[in-house]
């Protein structure tokens, strides 16, 4: 069912080369740089998971903080309050996120108001989720939850601090990017792009819009929830304001947009560029001027959208193709 593009990517020496080099990085980097990269990978994974709905199906979902929040807060709460193993918590949270995603997609379909309503409804749901997490002691309330120290016990969902967390996030990010490639090359990817470009026409030629929207949203929600669980294990502290408010979704949307929507590697590129930039800015300036790094994010996003509305990746691809076709850039004829 999956087209040959996927297997080409899977067989590409580039992919495995990059992954192999990346996997060796913990052995050479210091802990601060490793932290930057791990964080970037978390957002690569989140932005790529979001891309399935937001990029391919063109539905700007702002509800993804619900799934991150479920993955992070619920699995933590289950461990702390009921002693449920976090692996089981991950599965439970992912199942609930998937169900939530399917429900949201169904409600959206029921509206029949197009892409705009989807943005609005998902934002309303995300706000509801934030209010519930803040107000419900079981999920940590406003003060959050603290996970036990990471001792490296794999059976208890502990990966042994910095190195382990990096490898987990690298694997997860790679899998989610590959899921993107797979979907793009599968019938589902073509259906989603048809829905994005013209939903009415898609329906008219017999595309089952509801079913594909629900499928895309469910896949995206489950993946996002899993990333949420791994992210909170890395953070150790389950902070409701970081993990369960719509702000994190907005960041993800902006990374994906800056990188290039709907492309398998676009969101990854955006996150890899912007997360370290933001963290370094925060490290350098955050103490002195709080808010500056988000401010700069915002400016970068606005500039990129105005300058190249399709994102940075298509721009880079065009430059790369241009270089390959012509060899070295021909010297422009002097005009005097």
């Amino acid at each position: 069912m999956i087209g040959k593009g996927f297997y080409q990517t899977l067989a590409s020496p580039w992919l495995w080369g990059v992954l192999a080099v990346a996997a060796c990085l913990p052995l050479v980097l210091n802990s601060y740089h490793l932290h930057l990269l791990t964080l970037a990978l978390v957002y690569v994974a989140l932005a790529s998971a979001w891309n399935i709905v937001g990029g391919m199906a063109g539905q700007i979902s702002l509800a993804h903080s619900l799934f991150i929040g479920t993955g992070a807060m619920l699995s933590t709460a289950l461990l702390l309050k009921f002693g449920i193993n976090m692996w089981a918590g991950l599965v439970i949270a992912a199942a609930i996120s998937g169900a939530l995603g399917a429900m949201i997609a169904w409600i959206d379909f029921r509206f029949q108001l197009g892409h705009l309503s989807f943005v609005l409804i998902t934002l309303a749901f995300a706000e509801m989720g934030a209010i519930i997490v803040e107000g419900w002691e079981f999920l940590g309330g406003a003060s959050g939850l603290l996970l036990p120290r990471d001792t490296g016990d794999l059976l208890a969902f502990q990966f042994g601090g910095g190195h382990g967390a990096f490898w987990v996030m690298l694997g997860l990010a790679a899998i989610i990017v590959l899921v993107n490639v797979a979907i793009l090359n599968a019938p589902l990817g073509y259906y989603l792009r048809t829905i994005r470009d013209n939903e009415k026409a898609a329906q008219a030629i017999g595309v089952n819009v509801l079913r594909h929207k629900i499928t895309a949203m469910t896949i995206s929600a489950v993946l996002t929830s899993i990333v949420g669980t791994c992210y909170v294990r890395y953070l150790t502290f389950a902070d409701p304001y970081l993990l369960a408010t719509p702000t994190i979704t907005i960041e993800i949307v902006l990374f994906a947009t800056v990188g290039g929507l709907g492309r398998p590697f676009g969101p990854a590129l955006g996150a890899l560029l912007l997360v370290p930039l933001g963290e370094v800015l925060r490290g350098q300036l955050g103490g002195a001027v709080p808010g500056l790094h988000y401010f700069i994010y915002g400016v970068v996003v606005i500039v990129v959208i105005l300058a190249t509305p399709r994102g940075l990746l298509p721009l880079a691809e065009r430059a790369w193709r241009g270089l390959r076709r012509r060899g070295p850039e021909p010297r422009p004829a002097s005009v005097s």
């Binding site: 943005v119 808010g291 988000y294 401010f295 915002g298 400016v299 996003v301 606005i302 105005l306």
Partner: peptide, 27 residues
């Protein structure tokens, strides 16, 4: 300047603007 493009890009642009204003105030 975004008028000719997809409506969705304007959503993202105003989200970016929201970050700029919010954090400008914070600063």
């Amino acid at each position: 300047p975004m008028a000719g493009h997809q409506f969705l890009m304007i959503v993202q642009l105003t989200l970016g603007l929201s970050l700029v204003i919010q954090n400008g105030i914070l600063m």
